[in-house]
Amino acid sequence: MAGAHSDPLTHPEVAQGGVLRYIAGFISTTALMGAALVVTLRHDQPYETYLGLVGGLALLALVSQAVLYYGLDISRSQIWKSVALMLTMPLFIITVGLTVWMFQSLDQRTMLMPQTMEQPTLLQ
């Protein structure tokens, strides 16, 4: 963590913001979401390929936000935020991943599903 500053406006967390960085964050996230939208509207890939493509674009958008909006890096003023995020990421993945996996297993073994399903979901 950074030391004390007599003028709060000179604090590293205030100084880290920048016009170019925030505009780059806006443009990159919008462009990545636009690309994901085009992939979604074309609907011409197998479901697994589509999930991989859109998931990859979303991951890039999130990384872009982490770097350009939040300003996460390994500098002295940001290192503990970056470490906390890295330690929390597995919890996100475990929470959603295990829940979907458990219910997919339950779904296949105990639930009678109607034959009218037209659209695949994460459980199928």
């Binding site: 919890l91 996100f92 929470t95 959603v96 829940t99 979907v100 219910f103 779904d107 639930m111 599903m113 109607p114 009218t116 399903m117 037209e118 659209q119 979901t121 994460l122 459980l123 199928q124």
Partner: peptide, 14 residues
């Protein structure tokens, strides 16, 4: 994350 997990489970025609 918990809400997303619940959404994934409940997002079925059934």
């Amino acid at each position: 994350t918990a809400l997303f997990a619940a959404y994934a489970v409940l997002d079925t025609p059934m």
